[in-house]
Design a protein around this nucleic acid. Sequence first.
DNA 1: GTTCTTACA
DNA 2: TGTAAGAA
Length: 132
Amino acid sequence: MRDNIRRNMPLFPIGIVTKLTELTPRQVRYYEQQGLIRPARTDGNQRLFSFNDVDRLLHIKSLMEKGVNIAGVKEMLKQSQQVLEAKKEAEKAKKELSEQELRRLLKRQLIHPGRPGQTHLTHGELSRFFRH
DNA sequence: GTTCTTACA
DNA sequence: TGTAAGAA
C-alpha cells in the first residue's frame, strides 16, 4: 500500500493538468475553491497536482457532464470517501472476526443497505444536485 | 513563458 | 465560466 504516497505526490502544474483533463484553468481553480480538490503549492505559490488530484478532476468532470452541480459532486465525493472508509473497516473486521461472524455481518448489510449514516434523499431533494 | 489573484461582462 | 490586468 505504498502506492498511495506516490499517487498523492505533488507532481504537475496546472498547465499539464488542463491538458490531461481538458478542463480550463478557470474550472480547476474554481473546483479547488469549492473544496473539491486541494493541490499542494510550490514555494512560489504555484499549484502542484498529484495523480489523485487528476483522477478526482476527471471524476468531477464526468459528473458535471452528466448535469450534476457542485453540491452534487461534493456529495458523490463524500460517498466515495465513505466507501473507502467502509473498506478499511471491512479489513479491520476481517482480522478481528471469525469467518462465521463476518458472514453474518455481510448478510445483515445486504438486507439493510445504507444503515450507518447515509443520506436518504427524497425525489424533490435530489433535484438540488442538478442544474436547473 | 506560466501561473496567481482579483474583478468584471 | 470566460477574459483581462498586474504581480510573481
